[in-house]
Every structure is written in C-alpha cells, then in structure tokens.
Design a protein around this nucleic acid. Structure first.
Length: 450
RNA sequence: CGGGGCGUGGCGCAGUCUGGUAGCGCAUCUGGUUUGGGACCAGAGGGUCGCAAGUUCGAAUCUUGCCGCCCCGACCA
C-alpha cells in the first residue's frame, strides 16, 4: 500500500476527488453562502429549492448533523428515524391535512391511497409514542430524528437556506403535565446553545410566536448575518455572554432553568415580535442594537394539541388517563451549512470553523511531480492520516497561485504548504485560514501541530 | 399567486431589434516554455441555441403555446 495507505475516509487526494470548482459566480446565486457553496462544488441545484450534495458539501452536512446528534443525545433525547413518506390518515385525525395547504406535497400510491411527503412529524411521533406507552412512568421522554423534510415553499431561495427539501432535526418531548414539560423545554433550549456554540455560532434566542399554551414557551434561535432574512433587535449585552459550549448537568432542574432565564432575560426579538416601546424601556440606548438574522432553530411547546386528537394518553398515578404534554424542537441542519458560511467567510472564500470543516488540513504541494516535494508531502500526508486528521492533499500539477486561491476558497482551517524553497531549509509553511497567519515549521514538527 | 427578469458548450456572456446555418472569456484536453499568490505560446475537443407547433427557400433570431429558472412581496428550519 505504501505511503498513501487509506485510513477510513480520512484521506483524500485532490487528483482523485470530485470537487467541481467554479471560477465564476453562477448568476442565480445572490447571497454569499449560495455562491460559495456552488463555487466550491458542495452542492448542485437539481430543481427549485432542491439540491444534490456533492462530496465536499456532504462532509460538512454530516459534521453538522453529528454535532446536532451528539448534543441531542447529551440532553437525553433518543434518536429514531421516521420515514419521509407518510400516510394522510394521521394528518386527517389531527386536522392538519386540510390546514397545511399547498405547502404539503401530496402524492398517491398505486392503490390510490393518499400519501404525503412529510413536512414535519408531530402526528407520526405522537402516534408512535401513543402505541408505545401506557403509564406515567414511561414519561418524560424526548424522541428526535434527523430526516429530510419537504415543504413546497411558495418561494424557495438562497440555496440551501430556504430549500423545499431540507434536512432537519426535530425532537418531540412528552410529559404528564405542562409544568414537567417546561423542564423538557429548558433542556432543549440549553442543548441548542451548546449545539450552535460547537459550530462557532452565536445564536441568540428570541421570543417567538407562542403556541396555544401561551406564555414564554417558544423561541427562535437566530445567528447574526448581513444577509439574514429577518431584522433583529437585541441588547448589546448578548455579546458579553458565554457563547462557548459550557458544561451543564441536564438533570439539575434549577441550573437548567436558571440558564434559560439568563439567556432570555435580555431583550432580543425578530421583526415580527419586536416591540419598540418595550425595547426602549428595557434597554438603554447605548446598548440597543439591530441587524439581520438567520433563523437556525425554533422550539416550542404545544401542550396536548396533538396528543388529544391522536389519543396519546397515559394512566396517571391516581389511575386516571391524562393526555401528554408535548413540545417540538427543530434545527435546520442543511440550512446551517449555509448559515455558517454566511457567518464565516471573507473575500477569498469560506472560513470553516474547525468543528464542521470538510477537512482540517489542506496539504499543498507547490511542485507536484517533483521528487522531493512529492516525497515530503507523501510523508506528511500519511503522518497526518495516521493521526486521524482529515487531510485534503492538493497534488494537482497547477501553478502555486491557483492552488493558494483554490485552498482559500474552500476554506479549510489549516494549510500546510510544501515547496522547493521551504524544503531547502527543511520547513513547511503552515497557514491558518481564519487569521491568515503563516509560520515556517520544521517538517518533523508539522504533524504534532494538529 | 401578483410584479420584474432570464433560458445560447461545464461556468459567465455576445449574437435576437434588422432571419442567411453560432461566437467570445474562463474551464477542459495535447505539445512546449514555465512554477512561492488565479502563467504564456501553439493547437484541439465540446452546443438538438429550454420544448413544441407555425410563418419562411431559410429561424438562436419572427408568431403562438408550453416548460424551467432567478429576483421583489405574503410563508418558514
């Protein structure tokens, strides 16, 4: 096998990869994330609001998905997988078959049965839960899945930011009472803070339209970006809050609740919920900020809206039946791919946060075909791969300038540059994409940097 | 759905008004010279001009119908 042994899917040589880079901007792409996703060959449009994910894009999507999954698991949610196609029956029971309107893609099977491509899964999950539990001892529970949804949007746009087919994580909590439900809600709230933090995002929770229960049990999470779809108003103090993925004990009701309070006590609202008088009253002028935001998550509590019509009932401690109280919690996984780019790019291209970068290191061979640079690259490449680092090795016979531009465009966090000049001194140039900082590192020390 | 625009090699565009059998840049391939921030020279391949019908000796170009896509608005992860 030699130097280029494959360790799982860590390694990738550009000469063997599929990354159709475009030098010019496709004209349909108006916003930067859409442009960059098309230009770096992450995605390809198949139809309005429907995309194929090519190797680079898929790697990013999978990494985002995995972070979401890990944080859901950490918060105690259990992963399931429901189908993309659903029967109309459940939706007729909940009354939403007619309510949902044209946004729902309706289809019929060969027996003329009414089916639909799921836009969401409240009905199905409630039915699954109903069939699986009989006792109050079986709750609380939170089930989630990460699945493709289809909503026949009036106007899809901005690439994967508003697709018709999109990958979404949706979680559903079940509790015997609204009071208990609050803790389930709070846990998801906190898990969202952690999830976004791990992707390098500051997603500000903003009060959203409340469900039938009212109160403060619905929040949208918005990240700030110039190209965001909604206008947002918030307190400058949000900047000073802890946006790291802080540790928390999800079973500690008090701490979880306090954390939620901490992140919801300051003013933050998107345009439709914005109350100018309230904003002025609560926030001193010097701290009032406004900007654009992208919604990357939405959580809400809807009580017994689905459990009652669908008969999702358990027997309580005193033997009486009680309809379960539910909340649902969504994160737009595919949208996040675009949103992260909106939040992290420069004139040269994408700047991937390391946690979601398709590869951690780009290895550039400035003189592919030259025995010395080839050997040095092969050596580093296998060293990095053995260490489990995802490396994209640019072994193509291009001019240096083209390689640098390409690597900056695709935005891997680190570049290791090998050329004849550096090799004379036994060093590689290591460049950090985010800062542009470069340093010469002795060849033997390169692997240990990562 | 209302308003605006577009559809011509992989990407970006010209040509359409005034019909005459398709062109430019980038990308790709071959050869050569090059090589530390998007090289140069020479050559080459690649297009049913969105689809259909019509007018005409002749249609990318004119007419009609259809389809697709983008942007602005209402909706949303």
């Amino acid at each position: 096998m030699g130097a280029f042994t494959s360790f799982g899917r860590k390694l990738m040589k550009l000469s063997q990869y599929f990354m159709p880079i475009l030098r010019d901007d496709p004209k349909e792409a108006e916003i930067v994330s859409h442009r960059l996703m098309l230009r770096t060959g992450m995605i390809r449009q198949e139809s309005a609001g429907i995309y194929s994910w090519l190797p680079m894009g898929l790697r990013v999507l999978k990494k985002i998905e995995q972070i979401v999954r890990e944080e859901q698991d950490r918060a105690g949610a259990l992963e399931v997988l429901m189908p993309t196609i659903q029967s109309a029956d459940l939706w007729r029971k909940s009354g939403r078959y007619d309510d949902y309107g044209k946004e729902m893609l309706r289809i019929t099977d060969r027996h003329e049965r009414d089916m639909l491509f799921g836009p969401t899964n409240e009905e199905m999950i409630t039915d699954i839960f109903r069939a699986g539990v009989q006792s109050y001892k079986d709750v609380p529970r939170n089930l989630y899945h990460i699945q493709w949804k289809f909503r026949d949007e009036i106007r899809p746009r901005f690439g994967v930011m508003r697709g018709r087919e999109f990958l979404m994580k949706d979680a559903y909590s079940f509790d015997v009472s609204a009071e208990d439900g609050r803790h389930s809600y709070n846990k998801m709230f906190v898990s969202y803070l952690r999830t976004y933090a791990r992707m390098g995002l500051k997603a500000i929770p903003m009060r959203a339209e409340t469900g039938p229960i009212g109160g403060d049990m619905s929040h949208e999470f918005l990240i700030l970006a110039e190209t965001g779809e909604s206008e947002v108003f918030f307190d400058r103090d949000f900047y000073d809050m802890d946006w790291s993925a802080f540790e928390i004990d999800y079973d500690d009701l008090e701490t979880v609740s306090q954390t939620v309070t901490e992140y919801t006590s300051k003013y933050a609202a998107s345009d439709e919920k914005h109350e100018p008088e309230e904003f002025e009253k609560r926030v001193p002028e010097s701290r009032r900020l406004s900007g654009r935001g992208i919604e990357v998550g939405h959580i809400f509590f809807f009580g017994t809206k689905y459990s009652e019509p669908l008969g999702c009932v358990v027997q309580s401690a005193d033997g009486k039946p009680v309809a379960l109280h539910s909340g649902s919690y969504g994160i737009g996984v595919s949208r996040l791919a675009g949103a992260i780019i909106e939040a992290s790019h420069d004139d040269d291209g994408i700047i991937w946060p390391e946690s979601v970068a398709p590869f951690k290191v780009g290895l550039i061979n400035l003189k592919a075909g030259d025995a010395e640079t080839d050997a040095a690259c092969a050596n580093l490449y296998s060293g990095l791969c053995q260490k489990g680092i995802d490396v994209l090795y640019d072994d193509r016979d291009d001019r240096p300038g083209a390689k640098f531009a390409r690597m900056d465009l695709i935005g891997l966090p680190w570049q290791v540059i090998i050329g004849p000049r550096g090799l004379k001194d036994g060093v590689a140039e290591v460049k950090e994409r985010a800062t542009g900082e470069r340093q010469n590192v002795p060849l033997d020390n390169v692997v240990s940097l990562f």
